[in-house]
Design a protein around this nucleic acid. Structure first.
Lengths: 194, 194
DNA sequence: AAAAATATCTTTACATTGTTAAGATTTTAT
DNA sequence: ATAAAATCTTAACAATGTAAAGATATTTTT
């Protein structure tokens, strides 16, 4: 490791993390490529050695955040004793919402480009499917099947559940939302109320 | 009405409508103040006689879209024979989702600035509350009360229902979402599955 | 009706931004 | 060691939001 280095060494990852840092500081709307480069101590054009465009960097940052998101969801799954109990789906839902409540800037960022692949159907190819939804689907199908639901009902239930949880995350992370109760303790009631 | 006019005559409204036109054409992310001005045939700085900033124009455009949105919701209410039947809430939900399915560019635009006022509580001041939610709340409370639900349950149910519908709108308007069924006919099943 | 005040618009200018091009420096491959 | 490739810098461009100064039209006042 040299002190003054022409080459940064790990610029690609540094740009991703610096970008996420800036998003947490002042939101995705105020992020600029040049600020990210400056935060990494490189010139304005340096990012173009690692990303084709600003959107390309944003995509990589999104992947990075979604990886954290997936880790949180999987952690909540492993916290469940019974892998075939419907409660597992509730726990996933709670984690889904809480992830964005704990990182409010992430919601508008992750879903700003509304162009992620989403396959709602139970059939079809799940490669490239929005990973959090794919994970939820994968866990939900056997659990709901065991309850004796028809395939069509299962598909509807999965879409409905995801919509509820996703909508809750959207609402809870709005800047001027007023809610006197504590989300963490209240959220299960709200999901169950379905 | 003069042919060549230094003064536009109705520039404020024209800017709002031109802006919405551009959003429908190429999405909110690609909208610029200068393009809006050009579409109205005025100079780049002309909008500043009517709006303090680009965000100020965007706010006015949002209000304009929300007015249309409210009109659609109220129309669906008036289409219901029984004003105290829970089916009315389903109809509102369908209209909520369908409004954004019919105008896919509106969803990311209306909710991009996640800073609208939202009061989730049944108590408290509803002035300034996000009008579509306020309307839903207003209609839901008496209907759910009649079903014998407690106040707390009602609040939970309203939040849950709005989250579901709002989440459905978010998901259905994603660009790369694959769904082989027809939303219009399927959406009620999905909402009911709650 | 004339003059003054105001509203609406234009032109010019500037800073910020994404992006490209040309070239410098370092690392890697031969 | 030399060539090739990767990584970075500086300089420049077009698009954008916005401010300032001034022109033109409209409204208000007298």
């Amino acid at each position: 490791m040299k002190n003054k280095k022409y080459h940064h060494g790990d610029l690609r990852n540094s740009l991703i993390e610096a970008g996420i840092e800036l998003i947490n500081r002042e939101g995705a709307s105020k992020l600029s490529l040049r600020k990210v480069a400056a935060l990494c101590g490189v010139s304005q054009a340096a990012p173009y050695s690692h990303f084709q465009s600003k959107d390309d960097l944003l995509d990589a940052m999104r992947d990075y955040v979604i990886e954290q998101f997936i880790a949180v969801l999987e952690n909540s799954i492993q916290g469940c004793k019974e892998q075939d109990n419907p409660q597992l789906l509730i726990e996933m839902g709670k984690s889904y919402v809480m992830f964005f409540i704990k990182n409010p800037q992430y919601y508008p960022f992750v879903f700003s480009q509304q162009c992620m692949e989403v396959n709602l159907s139970l059939d079809g190819d799940d490669t490239g499917n929005f990973p959090p939804f794919q994970l939820f689907k994968m866990k939900a199908v056997p659990i709901l099947s065991k309850l004796g639901m028809s395939k069509e009902k299962i598909e509807d239930a999965i879409i409905s559940s995801w919509a509820t949880v996703h909508g809750l995350a959207s609402i809870a992370t709005m800047k001027n939302v007023h809610y006197d109760k504590d989300w963490e303790t209240k959220i299960e009631d709200i999901i169950r109320n379905k």
